[in-house]
């Protein structure tokens, strides 16, 4: 080793020593920080990895909790435990506030849902009551119709339900009014708005003077007039003339001859 290399070598050794010293100063700094704090140091040392940014948008560059508290003016180094407790208290307050807000929101939602459900149930109950009333009315109507048909001695024939009104009933009723059967027939017509009637004059026996079609039609028209006078609607009552010689399906010929002209009333359902 020459004398000229000695200063250069010394300088290199000095530089290496200087660099080692500065590096070790860093290690010592970390060691002192850790052990100077005692047990309180641990939470501040390791900021949680990949912590979501909750402080502010600009804190996207990872700023650990210690930095955030530093911005608030706190003193992490001097009282890290106290700072952590304050932060914990703030978080608990925020959570309690959130819970209160959630409860209030839930109660509001619950009241709204309850109100809506009550409204729906009430609507259903109304519809059910209406249906029940309708059913009851239909049953009542049916019972009344059955009673009326029994009273009118209605008969089922190939041409439909038929009620026969005799000449005597056509001519007069009690106290100069219409007979009770014609009044009942008008009543059936009134209680069943969709029902139509077809009136057909008929000769009870052969050789009768009333075999004239004009007379038969007059008898049917006479019945219609009586029904209209009792409140029946004229356009729901049709007139039909069959002519003479057609026997009454339900009566014997002798009875028909004895009774003369009668009118058959056919019920026409819609």
């Amino acid at each position: 080793m020459s004398m000229t290399n000695r200063p250069a070598r010394s300088r290199t050794l000095f530089a290496i020593g200087y660099l080692l010293l500065t590096f070790c100063a860093g290690l010592l700094l970390v060691y002192r920080v850790d052990h100077g704090r005692g047990t309180d140091a641990e939470p501040a040392r390791f900021p949680e990895p990949a912590r979501p940014e909750i402080v502010e948008p600009m804190a996207k560059v990872t700023v650990p909790p210690a930095a955030a508290s530093r911005k608030d003016g706190g003193s992490v180094a001097s009282d890290p435990f106290g700072e952590m407790q304050r932060r914990l208290q703030r978080l608990e307050d925020e959570m309690a506030s959130l819970r209160r807000q959630q409860t209030a929101s839930f109660e509001r939602e619950h009241a709204l849902i309850l109100e809506e459900l009550t409204s729906i149930a009430k609507a259903h109950q109304d519809r059910l009551n209406r249906a029940r009333a309708l059913l009851r009315e239909t049953k009542d109507n049916q019972a009344r119709l059955d009673a009326d048909l029994a009273f009118l001695q209605a008969r089922y024939t190939e041409e439909g339900l038929r009620v026969s009104v005799s000449e005597a009933e056509l001519e007069a009723g009690p106290a100069g009014g219409v007979s009770e059967r014609i009044a009942r027939l008008a009543d059936v017509l009134a209680h069943n708005p969709r029902l139509r009637l077809s009136l057909r004059g008929r000769v009870d026996g052969a050789g009768s003077a009333s075999g004239d079609p004009v007379a038969l039609e007059a008898a049917a028209r006479g019945l219609r007039d009586r029904l209209v006078a009792q409140g029946g609607e004229a356009d729901r009552i049709e007139l039909e003339t069959l002519g003479e010689g057609r026997p009454n399906a339900g009566d014997s010929v002798s009875e028909g001859r004895a009774r003369g002209v009668s009118v058959d009333v056919y019920f026409i359902s819609p």
Binding site: L29, V30, V33, R37, A41, A44, R45, P47, V63, P64, A66, A67, R70, S75, V76, A77, S78, P80
Partner: peptide, 8 residues
């Protein structure tokens, strides 16, 4: 480093 070490 100051943030990590909690230095002011």
């Amino acid at each position: 480093a100051q943030v990590i070490l909690g230095l002011e």
